[in-house]
Design a protein around this nucleic acid. Structure first.
Length: 292
DNA sequence: CACTTTACTGACTTTACATCA
DNA sequence: CATGATGTAAAGTCAGTAAAG
């Protein structure tokens, strides 16, 4: 999902962000069938022989075991997890590193450069891994690319990696992180925004309650005058103001015509006053209100 | 100036899903 | 159609580094 700064997009993004969060909440709590990612030790043998890069060769030379290199040095159970569940990951990473002859050249450049050398300087020590810091130029180019498309297809990834003198895997990770952090920031912004909306609506609600109390406190006028006063009152209501059904005292939108909501319209949520039953996500940009 | 804390960021793991043979 | 392999996005996390206090 591309980030957007326009007001309309903001509203859209907000909804999508929340629905995505919801989805992930659900999936995060879902039980995982164990057999799906079973590790197949022989999978690494499926690597195409013509895809072996010099970088990988360097890795193998330096460590004697590319698989161990690929497992995280910071994880006490890394080698075990690679054997028990993360095996596909390792295979994939190896495949990524070795994915083309173009990459061979790239990897060669990477290995020869001072950057991206974290894959070949190990020597078995877990503390040997150095954190890569992208140069300003690399970051700028990645940012520029991210502006145009927040996800990359394999071709774009390859091209960008070549352009940046990085491995495609690094480009891929950068984009993953960038998406995640963009989303996080957007969520924070949305949260602040919703907080303000909530405060404003609370104030508005308080004010309306007070107004209602004042009206109730007034001496009841004769029926005709009361109707006229009511009509005048509702005419002054802004278009977006919610109205209340006089008979059942349920809140509904201004489009709620008379007592129509009393007939049917229950299960499908199409009732004119369904807004009171089914909370709608408030989008201040598509539903501009004085509240926000 | 040494230190701690904090924010940033590159990399990794796990999970879910889509696609293809 | 069912199944396994593969690729990828998202979420969560770890750890190195630089800047701030």
């Amino acid at each position: 999902m591309a980030s957007s700064s326009s007001a309309e997009d903001h509203g859209l993004l907000l909804g999508l962000t929340l629905s995505t969060a919801h989805r992930n909440h659900i999936t995060a709590t879902a039980a995982n069938p164990n057999g799906v990612h079973s590790f197949e030790p022989s999978l690494s043998l499926t690597l195409l022989s013509d895809q072996v890069s010099d970088a990988d060769a360097a890795v193998r030379k330096g460590t004697g075991c590319a698989r161990q290199e690929a497992s995280p040095p910071n994880s006490a159970v890394s080698s075990f997890s690679a054997a028990s569940g993360g095996g596909r990951m390792v295979v994939k990473r190896e495949r990524d590193v070795l994915s083309s002859t173009d990459e061979m050249e790239t990897a060669e450049r990477v290995v020869s450069s001072s950057r991206a050398s974290d894959d070949d300087n190990d020597g078995g020590s877990t503390a040997a891994r150095k954190k890569l810091r992208l140069t300003k130029d690399q970051s700028a180019l990645l940012e520029e690319s991210f502006k145009h498309h927040s996800t990359l297809n394999p071709k774009q990834k390859q091209a960008l990696a070549r352009q940046l003198n990085l491995r495609p895997r690094q480009v891929e990770v950068w984009f993953q992180n960038r998406r995640a952090r963009t989303k996080l920031k957007q969520t924070e912004v949305d949260c602040e925004f919703l907080k303000k909306c909530c405060e404003t609506l609370t104030d508005e609600n308080r004010r309306l309650h007070k107004e209602l109390q004042d009206l109730k406190a007034l001496k009841l006028p004769p029926p005709q005058a009361a109707a006229a006063a009511a009509a005048q009152f509702y005419m002054h209501m802004p278009a977006a103001t919610l109205s209340m059904c006089p008979s059942c005292e349920r809140v509904g939108g201004p489009a709620a015509g008379g007592a129509d909501h009393h007939r049917g319209g229950g299960s499908d949520g199409s009732s004119a006053f369904s807004i009171a039953q089914k909370p709608q996500f408030f989008n201040p940009f598509t539903n501009p209100s004085a509240a926000c």
